[in-house]
């Protein structure tokens, strides 16, 4: 089986306890935050090549399907704007919240976190790298959904550039939430369930026009971070968008993103060492 003889090496390697009374040996290098974040991000991004369909396409099909359904119900105007914005941000919720929660839940349950925990890498690098990659997976789907929506409902595409801000900020907020849920859930099935619920909430509260809903649901809608991404995006379809409100909504996303990513990093630390 082995070509290695099991005899003692020359040089008295097996001499008795030789560590006693010696200075501690030099430690290997620590991986710095930025390079290791880039390495994790690149590795996670490459997973899209293997799992292309679930990571990139499923969410898009779902959102386009919803818009086609809603076309029979909604007749242009503010409601159409809400539907298109909601469906676009739903792609972000599906991938960054739901799929990332599932990914971290499974990684934690299967012992895959041990791999990272036995490398000298800052916890923030693992969480931010994975969250960044999942936010990136949402880019093609969100853009395709937004453009398709504009064509379906005849909305102007003048301000679609706002997606450059909406995707990363809503992505950060929802990916942070997804990562935290996945890492905190005691069992992987729970992580999956929480991710699904989060996405369903984003679907129901984001896509359906708000003014037809009861007070309680509207309050729940205000609690969901994806709502602010939807609102910011929907405002830009108007004749003269209120940029102040757009910025305000995006700022909420940014704050939620920072907080939820910090919680996710804390959860990762907690999950890695038991």
């Amino acid at each position: 089986m082995s070509v290695v003889p099991a005899e003692v090496l020359p040089g008295g390697a097996l001499a008795a306890d030789e560590t006693s009374g010696r200075a501690p040996a030099a430690l290997g290098p620590r991986a710095r935050l930025w390079p290791s974040l880039c390495a994790v991000y690149r590795a996670q991004l490459s997973r899209a090549r293997v799992a292309r369909i679930p990571l990139l396409f499923v969410a898009t099909f779902q959102s386009i399907g919803i818009m086609i359904l809603m076309r029979g119900v909604v007749d242009g105007g503010a409601e159409a704007q809400a539907v298109v914005a909601g469906s676009s941000v739903l792609v972000v919720a599906f991938v960054a919240l739901n799929l990332l929660a599932q990914y971290f839940g499974q990684l934690r349950a299967s012992g895959g976190l041990d791999h990272y925990a036995t490398l000298p890498v800052p916890p923030a690098a693992v969480v931010l790298g994975a969250a960044g990659a999942y936010a990136s997976f949402t880019v093609p789907g969100t853009v395709v959904t937004a453009v398709t929506g504009c064509l379906l409902f005849g909305l102007p595409m003048t301000h679609l550039w706002i997606l450059v801000a909406v995707i990363p900020l809503a992505g950060a907020a929802l990916a942070g939430l997804g990562a935290a849920l996945g890492l905190l859930a005691p069992r992987p099935e729970l992580a999956t369930l929480l991710g699904q619920l989060g996405m369903s909430a984003a679907l129901l509260l984001g896509v359906l026009p708000a003014d037809r809903m009861p007070e309680v649901v509207r309050f729940a809608r205000d609690l969901l971070p994806s709502t602010y991404g939807v609102e910011a995006f929907a405002r830009t379809f108007g004749e003269a968008p209120a940029w102040g409100f757009v910025l305000g909504d995006l700022a909420v996303c940014a704050v939620v993103g920072v907080v939820s990513l910090a919680v996710a990093t804390w959860a990762y630390r907690r999950a890695a060492v038991r």
Binding site: P35, S46, R47, A51, L107, H115, Y116, L119
Partner: peptide, 21 residues
Amino acid sequence: SSALDELTVSLAAETTGRLRG
């Protein structure tokens, strides 16, 4: 191996090396 499963052999080794500093 679940942390590395969807990476290529080459990227798994390289990323691990990067994360080892």
